[in-house]
Computed example of a mutant assay.
Amino acid sequence: MMANLFSSFDPSTNLGFSLNWTSTIIGLMILPPMFWLIPSRISYLWISVITTLNKEFKILIGSQGSKGSTLIFVSLFSFILFNNFLGLFPYIFTSTSHMTLTLTLALPLWVTFMVYGWLNNTIHMFAHLVPQGTPPVLMPFMVCIETISNVIRPGTLAVRLSANMIAGHLLMTLLGNTGSYLSVLAVNFLILVQILLLVLESAVSIIQSYVFAVLSTLYSSEVN
């Protein structure tokens, strides 16, 4: 039972279709026409979202490191948001529910920040290991704690995104599998619950993509 349940998150077994990862590049075919067709209301809405995010990321990074670097995080937000929403459609593989994708996004970002920080701002990076006002007795312990918390950052980014995407989909799958054993009245109630869960998952898709992009922005601001 559990093996069949989790197989819906396995790209190699889901529907027996070996091209489930192509869902991650569908956006490359859908989104570009927005930039050369006559702007629609959706285009204006998306441009306003990007503009707002760009201003917010500039504030988080600071005036020194915001020379075009916000575009990276806006693109990251857009990519994750698109794949999160795509996974809400039936029979489409949710790529962001796999550590393969989330760790591929988080690890290179973290490694890049660390390499840049330690090569260009070495003293600043050492200062981050000991928070201001730490008693001398606790300094060795704080260095260990800060080092561990820094090392696990890409893992926490990846696990947070994949776990949140799996949790809602798993709950919807569990409830959906019970539909054939329920009465007509219970099925109607189940459909209502599934619609509410779908709305909740839509909100989670937006929130998790925003959290991933904001945390990546904060990590980059610490190395400047």
Rank of each mutant, 00 (worst) to 15 (best):
M2L: 14
A3K: 15
N4C: 10
N4G: 15
S7G: 05
S7A: 10
S8H: 14
S8Q: 13
S8Y: 14
F9R: 00
P11T: 08
F17S: 11
L19E: 14
N20D: 05
N20E: 04
T22L: 13
S23A: 10
T24Q: 11
I25Q: 01
G27A: 01
G27M: 03
P32Q: 08
W36D: 01
I38M: 08
P39S: 05
P39H: 02
S40I: 02
Y44G: 08
W46V: 11
S48P: 10
V49G: 05
T51M: 07
T52N: 12
N54Y: 04
K55T: 13
E56V: 14
F57R: 04
L60Y: 11
L60R: 02
Q64H: 13
K67E: 10
K67L: 09
G68R: 12
S69M: 13
T70N: 06
L71C: 12
F73V: 07
V74D: 07
S78P: 03
L81V: 06
F82K: 04
N83H: 09
F85Y: 06
L88F: 09
F89R: 07
F89K: 07
F89S: 12
Y91N: 11
I92P: 01
F93E: 05
F93A: 08
T94G: 09
S95F: 10
S95W: 06
S97A: 15
S97N: 06
T100V: 14
T104I: 10
L105I: 13
A106W: 07
V115G: 03
N120S: 15
M125F: 03
A127L: 14
L129K: 02
L129Q: 05
P131H: 02
G133P: 03
T134V: 01
P140N: 02
P140K: 00
F141W: 07
C144F: 08
E146M: 11
I148H: 06
V151N: 03
I152F: 02
S162G: 04
S162E: 11
A163R: 07
A163H: 08
N164S: 13
M165N: 11
I166P: 01
A167P: 03
G168S: 04
M172T: 06
M172V: 02
L174S: 13
L175W: 10
L175I: 14
G176K: 05
L182P: 12
L185C: 05
A186W: 00
L190W: 06
L190S: 14
I191S: 14
L196W: 14
L196I: 12
V199D: 06
V204G: 01
S205I: 02
I206L: 12
I207N: 09
V211W: 00
S216P: 01
S216E: 00
T217Q: 00
L218F: 06
Y219N: 09
N224W: 08
N224A: 11
